[in-house]
Write a protein that binds this DNA or RNA. Sequence first.
DNA 1: ACATTTGTTAACCAAATGGTTAAACCAAAT
DNA 2: ATTTGGTTTAACCATTTGGTTAACAAATGT
Lengths: 197, 197
Amino acid sequence: MRTEEKIFEAAFRVFQLKGFKGARMQEIADEAGINKAMLHYCFKNKELLFEAVFMNAFGKLAPQINEIFKSQDSIFEKIKKFTDSYISFVIDYPFLPQFIIQEMNNNPEFVTKFLEKENRPDPTKLIHQIENEIKLGILKPINPKQLLIDIFSMTVFPFAAQALLKGMIQVSNEEFMQLMEERKKYIYEQIITSIKK
Amino acid sequence: MRTEEKIFEAAFRVFQLKGFKGARMQEIADEAGINKAMLHYCFKNKELLFEAVFMNAFGKLAPQINEIFKSQDSIFEKIKKFTDSYISFVIDYPFLPQFIIQEMNNNPEFVTKFLEKENRPDPTKLIHQIENEIKLGILKPINPKQLLIDIFSMTVFPFAAQALLKGMIQVSNEEFMQLMEERKKYIYEQIITSIKK
DNA sequence: ACATTTGTTAACCAAATGGTTAAACCAAAT
DNA sequence: ATTTGGTTTAACCATTTGGTTAACAAATGT
């Protein structure tokens, strides 16, 4: 179904840029190069179209996150893999993080709705692992949740707050992406240094 | 002007929660306990009301940020003061960061508009200072911009991605705020450990 | 060949929404 | 007491917006 895809991709772009409330069905139709009625023919209504887009967006990110939560690697290895693969991925979808965060904040019910899914990112195993490696004396005694927050903060924030950051530290889009490229390795080194005993 | 304040505070709450596009003038009027026409009497239109709120919001945060950019302290001291005072402040306005980031992303023109102000946060001095302390051998050789991004990421992200984080690591609002309280000291220690030579 | 389902459109509709108007209210000045 | 100025409201208006309808075209099955 060619048309359905065109709509979906148009919706993906528009929703990502304008958010749910800001997006206009007409704009999505124009972007897809079809009549507005087609939107409702293919995707009942705005909510459902948005939900499809949002779940797809989250579905793209979840595997990246789950990797770090589920794999058998050591903490160090996990952090290395995560920062690298997450940033690599997000460089290709630079507006995904802010989109997901924004809509989660604006529609808190999404959070619960999403946590009901089976493959939801669940950090409990990782947290146990951290606690264990602390006991073993591999890591300094820190709050595992804080470390988790660190990892996400360092990787996700620059993309989520892109506009503000670019403006504040005065870098072009190219320089910014260059910084992010450099950041893959950088984050890993910083975090390891700060938690290794 | 009692009414004007009531409107402003109502708008502050509603805009923060729903964003510019999501906020309804009627809702702001209800929240302020006045007639919708009063909004337009006091603040011409939605854009102007929003701009007042947004600039005020940013105006509250800017001093916190400028402190770290302008003071004469050492890097270590700056980071300590910043994380502590920023988080303390934001605990009282937990939705400010996401609000500012969201609207900056949705209205990129705000960024340029804001960068024109005189008291805009300007990190060049801090960056020079970092470069200098690296030369002096106090800090490891790192990219100063990365360090800057780290500091913001670690402090701001948890608030900006509040809904997602709370859901993912499964903490109540109280536990979350407790984590943030703990985080004031934690961030400082982590960063120092990772950059001190 | 023909009927039926599927895809597509232009025109239309009702509700929501930002914004306006004209009248009422009310305190202070005259 | 009356005027006058700002303040407040109810009712109204124009536009936008999500959504529908009915007609039409294009496949698709028989």
